[in-house]
Design a protein around this nucleic acid. Structure first.
Length: 715
DNA sequence: CTTGCTACTCTTTTT
DNA sequence: GAGTAGCAAG
């Protein structure tokens, strides 16, 4: 308890006021690095430790499972580990999954429902399109799915779905079929977890009462990233006691594309007129230089309440803005600079992060790290749980847990190859549908027989499957895992003698560890847990190596040194978001989030060229770079037109004809006197070519291709 | 039913 | 340029 009091002493007066706020509706609005999560954690510890609230009466919603785990550990330190076991802490999705399993009967669900990830969801959309005889080429499954997801995030059922365009008309029809398939497979998608929970609480007064009575205090982290469905859920649960404590920052709202609506902040004010709003402006993370840069970028967004970020940490070094030739040289610069920083003891490798807009940008970076023999941590990209071998093994476990899961069955019924082809599977599926039972039942009852080899293979598979299902009750998750691997033939199939096969097998073994560690967790719960892990959840805290991650994944994290790469128009802001001011505003917030991850040093990198679809093109610097005041950067990025202006002159020099004519914008060239440069423009003249080049050392020049001795460099 | 070839999309961001 | 879907041949 003394420890707890000392901890509260460590907060400033405003933070402490927030922690000790009265139990009414409260919103803490605060900038980055202000200790929002710390305030939330402290409040829970305060409620348990000093106010004597029973832990099971507190529900806290975090954005990732990692955040939940850290919060639980921290609270354990403050009030004792025995008091954190009953705390309901988790993401919206994990909390809803638990609730729905517990109340499955009343929700009209089978408690062993599968949770379909993005991949599975797309297969269901494809199946729905096929059922409706719609062309995948014409209606892209991803777009249809986005429309369905958007509807679910706003709690719109297929029946309520209003189409305002022909595309939406189609989407509405697919939505209905999509949901029907999910139900037939006894499966929920991510969005269903929230939507079904809201539906349950709204339609079932008994369950609703039970939940409301139980959760005396509801706390929400990253409130700006909640969508309408999540907001509705919060209101439902916090209904009776009205002890609702939300923490957020509208400037860090970067998930509008998946339904997050920062106007929930406004709704909260409307729905709770007695809302207490507490603003925290003090920053404990970054230097003033970094905060000034962040503010100068975010200030350009319209309709926002400005939070003036200030710190006691001094100014620190200026922000380094660098122009590099392409992604490869950019990556090389990152690696070289990291080596230098580490050598100078300016930072440990583990305190450094490299951030980018899209996952694809990690590749040149990875190659540079590998070339330099420098270890690194990669968050996201080919996600562990999205790997083929992992999804296959999980599919085996899913059909055991939930025999109705046809998406998983289809995935593995012929992996390894058993001679059960598309046709055979389809017939089996049709029979099951006609009888209204699962494929397992069909096989068990011998109501379906295929001729010849396929028939025998099917019979054998059915017997195996039935045996696994029987063993499910007797074996732990880990034991079942081993048994399935042994008896399915998957191990021999995977380990085909190739190095790649061994890699994949290693991944399966890593999953096996997770299964073994699950102990006596129920199979359904184990599968829930692995379906809902996020990328940062797998982040290895202990490794002392730089981290590579997207700007989205970086939210909530901080690093001593941050590199942001690829700061060019079309990447950040992304080309798909250029026409809509709302979307530009979100890209700007993304830049803001990136900048404010840095504690001490920030590097902003701009490549002159970017490659895409095999070839590459010249770029313009990101508009966000232009917003940085001279006082915070050590050099200013220039637009391509500005690069030429400085010293543009005709240069007539050694009369040596150029070896290769035809220069293109973006070519890297070398000149005997000016060194290396970049072609920005090239105009053919009568029997020559006028080339405008930005030389990295000598500045802009206009040259004759034939006369100047300019040469193209191999890339 | 499996294998191997060709043609085509694809790049946001994620629970 | 790569990964995959779709198709034809074995």
């Amino acid at each position: 308890m003394d420890y707890m009091l000392a901890f509260l002493e460590g907060l400033n007066s405003k933070q402490r006021a927030a922690v000790e706020a009265k139990d009414g509706p409260t919103l803490v609005l605060a900038g980055p690095g202000s200790g929002k999560t710390r305030v939330l954690t402290s409040r829970i510890a305060y409620l348990i430790g000093l106010r004597g609230i029973a832990p099971y009466r507190i529900m806290a919603v975090t954005f990732t499972n990692k955040a939940a785990r850290e919060m639980r550990d921290r609270i354990a330190q403050l009030v004792g580990a025995s008091k954190t076991a009953d705390l309901m802490i988790g993401t919206f999705h994990s909390i809803c999954a638990r609730l729905l399993r517990r109340e499955a009967a009343r929700a009209g669900l089978d408690r062993d429902f599968s949770i379909y990830d993005a991949d599975d969801q797309l297969s269901v959309v494809k199946a729905a399109l096929a059922d409706l005889k719609l062309d995948e080429k014409k209606y892209k499954p991803a777009s249809i799915h986005a429309a369905i997801s958007a509807a679910k995030n706003e709690l719109i059922t297929p029946e309520e779905y209003r189409a305002e365009s022909y595309f939406q008309e189609i989407a509405g029809r697919v939505y209905a079929r999509y949901n029907a398939i999910l139900r037939a497979n006894n499966a929920l998608d991510f969005d269903d977890l929230i939507m079904e929970t809201v539906r349950l609480l709204r339609s079932d007064p008994i369950v609703c009462e039970r939940v409301r009575e139980r959760y005396l205090h509801v706390l929400v982290d990253e409130f700006q990233d909640t969508n309408l469905a999540q907001y509705a859920l919060i209101k439902l649960i916090a209904g009776r006691h009205r002890s609702l404590f939300c923490v957020g920052d509208a400037d860090q709202s970067i998930y509008a594309w998946r339904g997050a609506d920062y106007r929930n902040v406004l709704r909260l004010r409307e729905d709770y007129p007695d809302l207490t709003v507490i603003t925290l402006e003090q920053n404990y993370r970054s230097t003033q230089t970094i905060l000034d840069a962040a503010m100068s970028v975010i200030r350009k967004n319209p309709n926002r309440i400005h939070i003036n970020l200030s710190t006691q940490r001094g100014h620190g070094p200026k922000i380094a803005v660098r122009e590099l030739f392409n992604e490869d040289e950019e990556a090389q610069f990152v690696v070289d600079t990291i080596e230098e920083l580490v050598r100078q003891k300016a930072a440990e490798p583990g305190e450094i992060a490299v951030m980018y807009r899209t996952n694809a940008q990690s590749r040149p970076l990875e190659e540079a790290f590998i070339r330099a023999g420098m270890p690194y941590r990669l968050v996201g990209a080919t996600r562990f749980y999205a790997r083929k071998e992992i999804k296959d093994v999980l599919a085996y476990l899913r059909i055991i847990n939930n025999p109705a899961d046809a998406v998983s069955l289809k995935r593995i019924i012929n992996v390894p190859p058993r001679g059960i082809g598309e046709k055979t599977y389809e017939q089996l599926q049709n029979t099951a549908q006609a009888l209204g039972v699962s494929c397992l039942d069909v096989l068990n009852r011998g109501e379906f027989s295929a001729p010849g080899r396929a028939g025998r293979a099917l019979q054998e598979f059915g017997a195996r499957w039935a045996q696994w299902v029987r063993l499910r009750g007797e074996l732990s998750v880990g034991q079942l895992f081993d048994y399935v691997l042994q008896t399915s033939g998957y191990e021999e199939y995977l380990r085909d003698g190739s190095a790649e096969g061994e890699d994949r097998w290693a991944n399966v073994l890593a999953l096996r560890n997770v299964a073994v560690e699950a102990g006596d967790t129920m199979l359904s719960e184990f599968l829930s847990n692995v379906a809902l892990v996020s990328d940062v959840d797998n982040y290895d805290e202990t490794a002392n190596a730089p981290t590579l991650l997207t700007l989205h994944a970086a939210k909530g994290l901080e690093f001593k040194v941050v590199f942001i790469v690829g700061l060019v128009e079309g990447v950040l802001p992304h080309s798909r978001n250029l026409d809509d001011p709302e979307q530009i505003a979100e890209e700007r917030r993304l830049m803001y989030v990136g900048i404010t991850r840095a504690k001490e040093r920030l590097y902003l990198l701009r490549p002159f060229r970017r490659s895409q679809w095999g070839d590459s093109e010249i770029t313009e610097p990101s508009r966000f770079l232009a917003d940085l005041p001279d006082s915070v950067v050590d050099s200013k990025p220039r637009k391509n037109s500005e690069l030429l202006q400085a010293t543009a002159t005709w240069q007539s020099a050694p009369a040596k004809p150029s070896a290769n004519s035809r220069f293109k914008p973006g070519d890297k060239v070398v000149h005997p006197r000016f060194g290396q440069g970049l072609v920005l423009r090239s105009t053919p003249t009568r029997d020559d070519e006028e080339v405008e080049v930005f030389f990295f050392d000598a500045g802009g020049k206009r040259l004759s291709a034939a006369m100047s001795g300019l040469r193209k460099l191999k890339e």
